[in-house]
Amino acid sequence: MSQIRKSLWRGALAVAAVAGFVTSAAAQMDLKIMAPAAPGGGWDQTARSMQQALTQSGIAKGVQVANVPGAGGSIGIAQLVNNSKGDGNQLMVMGYVMVGALLTNKSPVTLEQTTPIARLTAEYEAIVVPASSPIKSVKELAEAIKADPAKVTWAGGSAGGVDHIAAALFAKAAGADPTKINYIPFSGGGEALAAILGGKVTAGISGYGEFESQIKAGKLRLLGLSSPANKATADLPSIKAQGVDLEIANWRAVVAPPGISADQKKALTDAMDKMAKSKEWQDILKAKGWEDSYMSGDAFAKVLNEEVARTKDVLTAVGLVKS
């Protein structure tokens, strides 16, 4: 037993030593950031990147990251709303996926109960087909789906997630019945990618980062991104510019608990404003390939409300949420 303990301690000490090293001394506030997911996922990586940027730039003295995994964030948000009321040092990372998860899980706690602070990053959805597919453009895919939505099989992430919603919105914009789409959810990005590469499905839909290296290697054909038409380039065409009105982004943001004072809200918002401009944060965005979509205060609160309403409509239309 002593051997296990020894090696565990050794590991713990090494971790503590390096962690202590990155924390800088100059500072103002102590922050707690909750990642409502297990270590390793997108929300966790966002929380830990924020920790890195906030401490290295000296915006915060100490930042603790806690993971509260479970049910697409439903457990984390319940904890934030019920246990952290009025705590001006607490933040929670969340994202578009949580909007859908709270609706499909019939969560008793909603996003309206939290205090929106800022949107940080965004990733556009990409629609791809195998390189050998006869479908060459968004228009051809739209025609196929209009002819018979069930015959076009989609591979993507979990049911009710952003990939599923984007596929339903695509069908709707193409003039087909979104309730009839044949969307096949896969658990990890890897499994969906294997099904697309193996030609088991008509098209794949997921964040651009999932497909990037396959597109560059010529194994997948990128039909388009769910980006605004004016952001399109030759390499990264937009779906909207090709005549199908689909615009959606998988964004990540931070919210604070309910019941915080106006001063506390301002302090948190200021800290985020400063972080978003810091070199440390910009470097992280570049390294991770995250698109900067920073937006704070009332503008973000308004966007959040719109996204909740739109998502509810789509999920009701595809039958995942009963109105």
Partner: peptide, 11 residues
């Protein structure tokens, strides 16, 4: 191992 690698990544 997954959890360990996740915790070590930022370091």
């Amino acid at each position: 191992p997954a959890l360990t690698v996740a915790l070590l990544l930022p370091i």
